[in-house]
Simulated assay, not measured.
Amino acid sequence: MVVQLSWLRTFVTVYRLGSLTKAAQRLELSQPTVTHQIRNLERTFGKELFERVPQGVVPTCAADSLIRDVQGPVDALGIVVERHFGTGPGGRPLCVGGPVELISSRVVPAVSDLVADGLRINFSFGLADDLLERLASGHYDLVLSTVRPRLRGISAVTLVDEEFAILASPELASGIPTGRIMKEGPAAVLDKYPLIAYAESLPIIRRYWLTVFGIRPTSAPSLVIPDLRGVLAAVKSSAGISVLPTYLAADALLRGEAVKLLEPEIPPINTFYLATRDGGMCHPDLTLLHSHLLMKARLWV
């Protein structure tokens, strides 16, 4: 039985992308070449690896079994080739995706020492579902996700829990009867103050309201800013109240530029995950970055 390494690389790429066309584009091959290599592998393997569907291809059970054994060695071989024959110094940079606020405020400072020692990283921002899809298809090496990945071929470990707090500027908070919020309900006390939100649908505020008050918010946002750093800036300038992760507001709270309106016994939290492709941790730079972030995250507020 003779199996060419190029067939296995094509198999891994098709498996991850779920499409012969996309795999051909990624590998810079013609689609007939990709199809031919997959058929050669199926003929050699003696089993069908993909079912053709209108949207692309779906891996069979045989493909699910094969990918577990070959993707690690194929990725490792790709790293060796890149290291010795790549055009750039030290091969390509790591591609990391995640939410702009966490990466800007915590991740970038945490990895500055690695960058100073020569590690190369390209950061990209986006929503968790989109980032995880691109991780699975090979665009990213590592994704910081606000949701636990459910995609086939993706593994994740808990990075850190973010805690949420309802905040206002000291000037605005001085006029809010905070002692009445839990007694009378948020609508009776807070609805008269402008609500600053990350999105029109109030995803973070809704989570806080349901966890702490057991109800959904009744007010529409007065100000929508699709960047939590902008939401924090608006809160500090007394534009209104909002719910923000405490890691992002830590400095503002420490300097007295914002204050918590409530201290619930069990504050709402959300978990960040470090997600990688199965077999991807054979990359030494990725292993270093992964362990470094886990270590540094213990110190984050």
Rank of each mutant, 00 (worst) to 15 (best):
V58K: 12
F45M: 15
E28F: 11
V100H: 06
L142M: 08
V189K: 11
A199G: 11
G46W: 09
L77C: 01
A252M: 13
I269M: 08
L262C: 00
L261C: 03
H292N: 10
G138M: 03
L232N: 11
A275F: 04
F272M: 11
T87C: 00
V143Q: 05
R148I: 02
L286K: 03
A63Q: 06
A258L: 09
E48N: 08
M281P: 00
W7I: 05
F125H: 12
L20I: 00
V212I: 10
H290L: 12
S124T: 14
N122P: 02
R39S: 05
S6L: 13
D251E: 15
I121F: 13
I181W: 11
W7T: 01
S137C: 08
G230K: 09
R229V: 03
L253N: 12
V3A: 08
A156G: 01
G91A: 02
V143G: 05
L135A: 04
V231K: 10
Y273K: 04
V301R: 12
A128E: 04
E257A: 12
I166E: 02
G256S: 13
K296R: 15
A188R: 12
D75V: 06
E42Y: 02
G175D: 14
V96L: 09
P59A: 05
R52T: 14
Q4K: 11
L27R: 01
L293N: 08
L294Q: 14
T35N: 10
R206C: 06
N122F: 12
R68V: 04
L172I: 14
G230W: 09
R68Y: 04
P177K: 13
V80N: 06
S105R: 09
A197C: 09
S291M: 05
